[in-house]
Structures are given as C-alpha cells and as structure tokens.
Design a protein around this nucleic acid. Sequence first.
DNA 1: TGTTAGCACTCGATTTTACCGAGTGCTAAC
DNA 2: GTTAGCACTCGGTAAAATCGAGTGCTAACA
Lengths: 349, 349
Amino acid sequence: MARRVKTPPQPKSNLDARKATILEAVVVEHVDTAQPVGSSSVAQNADLVVSPATVRTEMVALEREGYLAQPHTSAGRVPTDKGYRYFVDHLEAGVLGPAQQRQIKEFFAHVRGEVEDVLEQTSLLLSHLTSYTSVVVGSGHSHATVLSVQLVNLDARHHLLVTVFSDGTVTKHSVLASFEADHVEVSEASRQLNALLIGTTLEAKVQVPSRGDTIAKLVREAVSLLHAEMPTMEGEQVYIGGSAKVADVFEGVETVRKVLGILEQELLVVSLVEDILDKGVTVAIGSEHGFEPLSSCAVIVAPVSLDGETIGAVGLLGPTRMKYQEVMAAAEAVSKHLTTHFGGENERA
Amino acid sequence: MARRVKTPPQPKSNLDARKATILEAVVVEHVDTAQPVGSSSVAQNADLVVSPATVRTEMVALEREGYLAQPHTSAGRVPTDKGYRYFVDHLEAGVLGPAQQRQIKEFFAHVRGEVEDVLEQTSLLLSHLTSYTSVVVGSGHSHATVLSVQLVNLDARHHLLVTVFSDGTVTKHSVLASFEADHVEVSEASRQLNALLIGTTLEAKVQVPSRGDTIAKLVREAVSLLHAEMPTMEGEQVYIGGSAKVADVFEGVETVRKVLGILEQELLVVSLVEDILDKGVTVAIGSEHGFEPLSSCAVIVAPVSLDGETIGAVGLLGPTRMKYQEVMAAAEAVSKHLTTHFGGENERA
DNA sequence: TGTTAGCACTCGATTTTACCGAGTGCTAAC
DNA sequence: GTTAGCACTCGGTAAAATCGAGTGCTAACA
C-alpha cells in the first residue's frame, strides 16, 4: 500500500512551530544516535525553553498524529515514515561541506573517458561522499538516432551487428543465420542497413526489403534484432557503488541480506528509481515507494538532464534513519555537475 | 605469509589411515554444523571401530601437527586451513546431484545471446547452484585479431572508435581531437585504419603514417588509443553472482563488510582468480591465496579454455567451512559446459 | 489555560549468579 | 595400543537481581 505522493507539498501537514521544532529535534537526534529520543534531551537540546514535561505532552500529540512512535512504553520516541516525511518537506536546502564540494569539483575536473566509465566512477564518488550505497542510472537510447550500423562477419553463419548511436552508445548483437553468407554479401547488407537506419531512432518503423535473397534476409534479421531491443529495458545502464556500505548502515543480517538481494536485481533498481522520478519526488521514505522489501530504506534521487530531457538519475539508498540534508545536497550537487558535464561535452548544436 | 602451493601434491602430508578418517570426519561434521566437533561424535559417526578415548589421542596428534585446532579447552576440534587442505587434496572427485546436473544441462541448452550475457547468466547459475558467491572471469582479447575498425564522427571534434575483435568483443573509445575533421576525412581515416589493423592483434606493432594531415593525425590517435588499452586489465570481464549470499554464509557483520568490499573491487577479484589459476590450483583455502582480507574464505576456481588456451575462469567464494566436494563438482561441470559451449559456437576452423 | 514540578511506575538493558554438560586430558587397567 | 573411568575446564544458557531512562498522570502554579 504505497502512500501516494502528490506534487502539492505537505497536503495537511501543519504542525505548530513548537511541535515542528520538537519533531525536528527528535529526527536529528535519532539519526545521529540510532536510539529512541527522550523528552529531556529534546528539551535541553533544541532552542525550546520549555520543560521536559511540556515536551512530553507534545510528543503524545505527535504520536497520536502519527509522526512519532514508541518502540515500547517507557522508551523514547522514534520518528515514523510520516515524521521523516514532514522533516524533509520542511528542510531548507542544505549546503555541502567545503571538503565535499572540493571533492566533487576535483572529480569532475579530472574525470574523463567513456560515458559509461564516468557514470561508474560517479557512483563510487557518491558512495564515498555519503557513505551510503549509490545508484547511477543512465537511460536507454530510446530517442538517440543511429549514426552507423555495421555487420561484421565472424564466419559464414555468424555475424555481429554493431550499432553506434548519436548519444555515443554502441550496441552489439549476434546474428546467427540459418544460411551462409560471404564477405561480399555481408558488406552489401551492411551498406543497405546504413542507408536504411542512419538518422532514425529505434522507435521509427523502417521499410525493409521483402526480397528473398541472402542480403535482404540479413537486413531483415538485423533490423528485427535491433528493434527487438526496444521494449525491454536493455540499453539502460546501472552502476551501483558501495554496496558494501549496506553492511555498515543497516543493522541486522536479515535486512542486509534483503537489501543486497534487491541491489543484485538491477532491473528492479532501475524501475524503482524511475518510479520515484516519475512521481516527481526526490525522496522516498520507507513504504512510500511501495516496495515492501525496502520498507526500512529511504531512497534519494536526483535527475540528470540534457536539453531539458531526463537522461538519467543518481540515487542514494540508506536506512530511513538517514542524514537527509547532507545526502540530498550531495545528490543534487553531483547531478548538477553531471548535467553540465554531459551538456558541455555535447555542444554540437 | 602465503603458503606456497607446489605442483607436487601434499609434500609431506602423510597421515595414517585412521588419522585421515578422523580428520575427514571432523571436516565433514564441522562443515555441516559449524560447531566444534567432539571425539565421541567422530567415534560414532565414522566407520571407525574405536572408542572416543582413542579418537581423542589421535586428535591431540592431529592438533600437534597443525590439522586441527581447539577454540578453547574443553571444546571440540575445528579444522585448520591445513586440515581443509589435506581434506580437499584427498577428495575423490565428487558427483553432482541429478537435480543440479539437470539444471546445468537445462541452462546451457537454453542460454543464448552475447558472450557477455552468457557469462553473466552463468555467474547467476553458479551462485544458485552452490549458494555461494560466484565469479566468472572472461579474459581480455589479448590475442584476438581485429576484424573491423570504424571511426564514427559525432561532431567536428568528437569521434568514436569502434573496434570488433575476432572473439566477438566490441570496444569503443572516444576520440577527442584538437582539430576539426569532416565526414569525408573521418571516413578516409576509418578506411585506412581498417587496412592497417584488420587481422592484427593489439600486441602487434603497426606502421602508422607520419604525415601531418588531418587524416594521418586521426589514424595515429586512434591507433594509440587502441594500443593504450593493452597494458591495463581493460577488456577483462568480471561477473559476480549472488553477492547477497555473502550475508548468509559468513557470520559476523565485520566479515561480511570486508568481503563485500573486496568483491566491489573487481580488478582485485580478477587478479585473485588469475593468481590462483596461475598456481595451477583449483582451491585456495584461507591464507593460501596470500590475500589477508579474505583469510576466512576459500576460493574454488576452474578454468574455461578454448583451443587449449585459457580464456576465462569460473570461481566460487565461500567460507573455509565450505562444501568442497559439491562446489568443486559444480565449478568443474559448469566450466566444462562453458568450454564446450564456446567451443561449439566458434567452429570456424 | 498552558506549563511545570513531583512522583509512581514500566520495562528493556545490563550485570550477577548459578548451573549444566559437552568435551577434554590423564591415569590405570586390559 | 586401546579403553574405561574420572576429575576438571569452561563456554553457553537461564534465572534473578538491579538499574535507570523515560513515561504518564496529577496537582500546583502563573
């Protein structure tokens, strides 16, 4: 039962100033200590000038309204998902520490290489920066156009279809033909494929030759292979950085196992991140993403765009008890840098 | 201090039959129960017809010789690395369960797609089969020959060098030129590159044009990019399956964290596997691989070859307390299947 | 009416103690 | 060389005792 997150922020979450302060104090302390927070530490800590007793009264109210929970009688309070949600919704944009800022600048000043490499490195950066597990997603090339297609023959029946797209990605497909084709025929097929496909996107229909000769058959085979890729997630790239952090950050072997298991299924991770992005949200807390096995996790995402188009995302996965401000700032900073990195690179207008 | 593993098996490991039986019983039971093993259970269990007291005497000897250890006085015995080593050295080849055999057959009968996909799937198979973490390594294409080179231009200064090798791998390299080049020049460079490189390996030196024109510069740039790849591990492929199993199989969060951290550094994993392969060994137990952070692990490897050449390996990583027989059988079976899978595919002689 | 001090009470966490028993090493008899 | 017998060790578990952080409630207070 996923809690729906609407674009208008905090539909009815209106807490008076003091309750808000108390909630915030509880979140901050609990994130820091991982322990239930008692009334007295809140009373001292925050810039409230009230007694613990008053705080207690407020806490009872906050609990009734679902922002806090009590692990058991006579323990302190712990934020609920709803409590965290209020907290992040009312978080003013965090600033990154100077050391981290420098680290990011440094990184993007020196990083080079293929897009794939950059994304992979970025995922490591993010994970180092935040000490949570990071996910970097590069969207598939659904509206990239074909720059070049080439059919290379390995032997009489095996060929390799290599396609270059305008976004710089390269795909390969094995073509296993039921008939033999020689070098000349393959070259000709290659030429025809180029003529046919260059400039098109994979979504576009193309007119394939219906003749029955070897060349036409090769062409048809190749085109269908390429287009078969579309409906699947193929072409999506996922880079997961710091999965070892899972063991640090979650307590309980069971949780660790579950989260690691999820991370292994990269398709799942991609769709999770994209779901969250689609909702227009940057943070999904606990059950909000509607993905039960990760109900003790929070996921923070930030889109990476190019020409107004979302071409990927960076994400961070940690426990709901997470340093939201820092992590959100890091995700945002990195996604911005990535955006300009690719933007600057592709100045081919 | 890595224990050297020489080709001549068990240099001085000669235990009389009874000691061997006892050691074996201890290993088997401890692998099964994860508990120290006492003299009485050994006396009952094994087909020894001696009393616990006798077993105890033998155990004292085995401990003195370094095959067994005692967690503390008045606990049972636990095998040492040396104990496990003796055990696996004297293991007759295990047979796979019929269910597993079927699973493997099934898998290789139905698997298709690119080599990379097959290897990745295989790593999942292995991990399912054994419930340990698996590592599948594909060697780089160091002696594959170039089948095709193509330079595709993205814009005036950005080009993409796409190379197809005889082993079916495809690489891409961004070429960022300091000068502009038009479509025609790039095509010509592409043509020349083909003439120059087709049929060569990346190890071979080629005669690049020394002229100063755009085309020659492009060609030189491309060739140097390709050759720069060689010394690094690039081209190595690693597929790790079931890293979540780490959390099941090792006790202690600390160990889990450490092992996961290692697994993240894929280069490390590759070199570990290749080290073990180089030693001509199939099992590295505990400190044998000389890699301290994995001192509580055993690694089982099996090479995958093609035409007598080792083209990759499958590996399994678990605790030293591991089901060696089963796992070795699985690794061997899968590596055999992989070998014939690729062997059968590439019948282009 | 909202705030606070006071207080009895709860209940998980920690420490203490007691105890059990699996397993050992040794010795003496077979 | 093997075995039964036996005293001894020591980790693991369970029961008991204790502690104290934190609560909810009530009554007094501003």
